[in-house]
């Protein structure tokens, strides 16, 4: 029995080690093949690029841990970014009451994040109250939120948001890009939530066995709505970063970002059926995707091939994960 546990833990460590090893080998290879991969400018650039995906992936991890999925994060990112940008630039004009509300920087950002959180909560409500499968509910939200983005922006980018707003996407703090700090804080909070709080426990319990969790007195609906709200809020945060970096809210921002997020979660070893996985794994997954993207660009690989290669990496990661869990049984 004792041997079995040791073997189990050993395998566990081995798996984490495997992804890490893959990352190290990848970096090493890129360092050999290109001159600029290991320059601090490039590495910081990679980190800046993945910070958005990390924010989204963290929320996605929580959703997937409960056994769900969220396809709407890309659209929520776009709408939240657009609303933050729009409110900052034009304010809110309610012609019916003949009032105008101007927004400060913080106010606009909060409104954007609040938009994402509300849409996420709405996802959760539809899923729990009306028993719509998460795939369908969030697929609907994917097009609804995108539609509203188009309506709000009338199909044109909202640009020229000022240097203060740009700080969130392009600024530096202690020699590290601000978006990296943001994603770091998000990751730390998420780790604490999953490991140390009741919410985290309930998320794992629901994903592992919803029926047992419910009988234990856990309010399944409340937890699920919370989790989808967090996913929406983090997508919105990603939207703020993207908008700030481009100094412009693009109506088609964030399309297919949900796929990169799901890929990061899956490469990170989280089970799509829920109950198993870690935030740390997801971060590793996001870094692997980011480094891969960066490397392929540095190597001048055509964008078409990039997509093919990314897909193959996702497949390989899942296949290795599966064969590992098989030998664990």
């Amino acid at each position: 029995m004792f041997n079995k546990i040791l073997a189990h833990q050993y395998k566990d460590i081995l798996f984490k080690f495997q992804s890490l090893l893959a990352l190290v080998i990848l970096c090493f290879a890129l360092g050999m093949m290109t001159d600029i991969f290991f320059t601090s400018a490039n590495l910081l650039n990679v980190m800046r690029q993945i910070s958005v995906n990390i924010c989204i992936s963290v929320g996605m991890t929580l959703v997937i841990l409960t056994g769900g999925i969220d396809l709407s994060v890309g659209s929520i990112l776009a709408l939240s970014g657009a609303i933050a940008a729009g409110l900052l630039k034009f304010g809110l004009e309610i012609s019916f009451f003949d009032t105008f509300i101007g927004f400060t920087l913080i106010g606009a950002i909060l409104a954007g994040v609040l938009t994402g959180t509300s849409l996420g909560a709405f996802n959760g409500l539809v899923i729990t109250r009306f028993k719509v499968p998460p795939f369908v509910a969030t697929l609907a939200m994917l097009t609804i939120a995108r539609g509203f983005t188009m309506l709000y922006t009338k199909g044109y980018p909202i640009s020229g948001l000022g240097p203060k707003f740009s700080y969130f996407g392009t600024g530096w703090f202690l020699a590290i890009p601000v978006p990296v700090w943001i994603s770091l804080i998000v990751v730390l909070i998420a780790i604490v939530i999953t490991k140390k709080t009741r919410l985290g426990r309930y998320i794992y319990a629901i994903g592992g066995n919803e029926s047992a969790a419910s009988l234990s007195g856990i309010n399944i609906k409340k937890i699920k709505i919370t989790v989808y709200a967090i996913a929406g809020g983090l997508a919105a945060l990603g939207g703020i970063i993207v908008t700030s970096r481009l100094d412009s809210a693009q109506p088609n921002a964030g399309s297919s970002y949900e796929l990169d997020a799901i890929a990061a979660v899956v490469i990170g070893g989280t089970s799509l059926s829920g109950g198993k996985g870690t935030i740390g794994g997801t971060v590793l997954g996001a870094i692997i995707i980011g480094v891969l993207n960066n490397g392929l660009v540095l190597l001048n690989v055509s964008p078409f091939w990039q997509q093919v290669i990314k897909g193959i990496v996702i497949l390989l990661a899942v296949i290795i994960d599966k064969s590992n869990s098989k030998t664990n049984e």
């Binding site: 426990r201 319990a205 009988l215």
Partner: peptide, 15 residues
Amino acid sequence: DGLVLELDVRTNISL
């Protein structure tokens, strides 16, 4: 309905 099989003994008891 009783257990979350993928979680450990401690976590199941405290749930």
